[in-house]
Amino acid sequence: MASLVTCPHCGKRPKEEFTVKGAALTRPAVDAAQDVWFDYVYLRDNPRGAYQEYWHHTSGCRRWLVVTRDTATHEIFQCHDAAERGEVTA
């Protein structure tokens, strides 16, 4: 896993300051079918390559971030505040 995360508020910080929640997925509609919700809650793709996740800067600014990283190379492509959502594509 990437060891340095560039928080948009705090700058470069070690990963120990963060808590990873998991994949940043688009939430289904409230009345979506049960299998769609099952997929959203339980099933993950575990891709090799680009992956978008929610990270919480627990020991820093305490903001929720969306981190786009590569699971193979550990490179971090982008990191932005989750409040600016809309860019989540996964």
């Binding site: 070690p14 300051e17 820093g60 600014c61």
Partner: peptide, 19 residues
Amino acid sequence: TAVDLDIAVFPVGHATTTL
């Protein structure tokens, strides 16, 4: 801490939370 405390990037009045 991993925060850069050099006065050029962490001037007087600057604050942050860290481990």
